[in-house]
Simulated assay, not measured.
Amino acid sequence: MKIQAAITPAANAPFTLAEVELDAPRPDEVLVRIVGAGLCHTDLVAAEGMMPIALPAVLGHEGAGVVEQVGAQVTKVQPGDAVAITFTSCGHCPRCASHEPAYCHAMGQLNFTGLRADGSRSLVAGGQRISGSFFGQSSFATHALASERNVVKVAPGVPLEIAGTLGCGVQTGAGAIMRSLQCPAGSSLLITGGGAVGLSAVMGAVIQGCAHVVVLEPNAARREMALSLGATLAIDPRAEADWVAAVRAVLPTGVDFMLDTSGIPAVIERVPQLLAPKGTFGFVGVPPAHAADLALPGTLREAMRSGFTYRGIIEGDSDPDTFIPQLMALYLQGRFPFDRLVTTYPLADINRAVAEQQQGLCIKPVLLP
């Protein structure tokens, strides 16, 4: 079928809206009419040519919409169902069997290559096959193909156009606190970076009952948002000559937990100065390419002496079929207001959305076909 999609034609090139041909759903696939798709930093990393997906490609991996057609093998959803689309997984490796699909053995192949599991491409543009199936969806478009494993029904009362943000960035931040680190009530937490992931972590920390939630973020509007969502302190690293000392002034023995969403080497290198004994450092931020060889902070001796734990986190350790419905239920209870992070844009204005996100004028852009 012919659809409209935002194509990434080449590395670092602007997105281009164009007509492309999308395959009909195979027996194990679900055709979704996209109502909204979140714009995530991972999309921009892919658009810079820093991921395995070959360009040109249709990106987008936080889609939500209405099921229009299902393959013969699909039983989880039916036409007319409202769904959010998340990352995909194989369903049969040891990690999937233990309900840890974020660590699926085929995570890279299924989500980052732009190919189906069998190596085929689902999109045609200009008479040639181009990459799709990004995170099992490619939702910067009017329609996308997904599978049973990466669609989750959207609860009534949850705004469908923004529900897709739960599928990656929001569940990564909230899940890092609620699932990966499992911060207990009364604990202290430092979050470095106040974007959508970091602010979702703030909301997760409030739900967990953390006593101290400190956010390090240079953007004033995002600091204000962090405080309004429940952070107990927001620090501007540009205004504090020694921001580590500012954290220590409030928490003299250090923080129990630290979550980095920034990927900034100068931040990551300060971790040993911030953690309390037996503290845990969780990281979802990816350092820039020139810092690819950055070692995790602290030597083995330092980690052993203080009992530190360094914890890499993917997708907030989410099992989407259970965690996304949990977040939706919390939203409906008024306890997880992720909608406050969102600014919507027409899909045709995707390049403006990218620019305004990079300028700090919005937190979580959502594109509306």
Rank of each mutant, 00 (worst) to 15 (best):
Ala64Trp: 09
Glu161Phe: 08
His105Ala: 13
Pro320Lys: 03
Thr299Tyr: 01
Pro159Val: 02
Gly169Met: 15
Ala54Met: 07
Pro101Asn: 08
Ala57Lys: 10
His105Leu: 13
Gly91Ser: 09
Thr299Lys: 06
Leu115Lys: 12
Phe15Cys: 12
Ala226Trp: 13
Pro159Tyr: 08
Ala6Thr: 06
Ala249Trp: 00
Ser306Arg: 15
His99Gly: 04
Gln78Asp: 10
Val342Lys: 12
Phe336Ser: 07
Val284Tyr: 04
Ala245Asn: 10
Met107Tyr: 14
Thr309Pro: 00
Ala239Leu: 15
Val215Trp: 04
Asp81Ile: 05
Ile313His: 04
Phe338Met: 11
Ala24Ser: 13
Gln273His: 13
Ala37Tyr: 07
Ser187Asp: 15
Gln69Arg: 15
Glu62Thr: 03
Leu145Gly: 08
Glu224Leu: 12
Ser187Ala: 15
Glu62Asn: 08
Glu356Ala: 05
Ala196Tyr: 03
Leu332Phe: 08
Pro297Lys: 10
Val197Glu: 09
Gly63Lys: 05
Ala241Met: 05
Arg352Asp: 10
Ile350Lys: 12
Gln182Asp: 15
Phe112Leu: 15
Asp317Cys: 03
Asp349Trp: 08
Ile314Cys: 02
Leu145Gln: 10
Gly136Tyr: 07
Val197Tyr: 07
Leu341Arg: 12
Gln208Cys: 11
Asp242Val: 01
Thr86Leu: 09
Leu229Gly: 01
Val151Glu: 11
Arg311Ser: 13
Phe112Met: 11
Val30Pro: 00
Gly80Val: 04
Phe283Asp: 01
Ile85Thr: 06
Ile268Tyr: 06
Glu21Gln: 14
Thr16Glu: 15
Leu216Ser: 11
Val206Thr: 10
Pro265Met: 11
Pro277Gly: 09
Arg335Thr: 08
Val83Phe: 06
Asp242Phe: 00
Ala303Asn: 14
Gly307Ser: 04
Pro346Val: 06
Asp81Thr: 13
Pro156Arg: 07
Ser98Asn: 11
Asp339Val: 09
Ala205Trp: 05
Phe323Leu: 14
Thr142Ile: 04
Pro25Ser: 07
Gln359His: 03
Val83Trp: 05
Gly132Pro: 07
Ser138Glu: 11
Ile363His: 10
Ala221His: 13
Pro14Ala: 09
Pro320Glu: 05
Glu315Val: 00
His143Tyr: 10
Arg33Lys: 15
Phe135Leu: 05
Pro52Asn: 10
Arg340Met: 08
Gln333Gly: 07
Ala117His: 10
Pro287Tyr: 09
Pro79Gln: 11
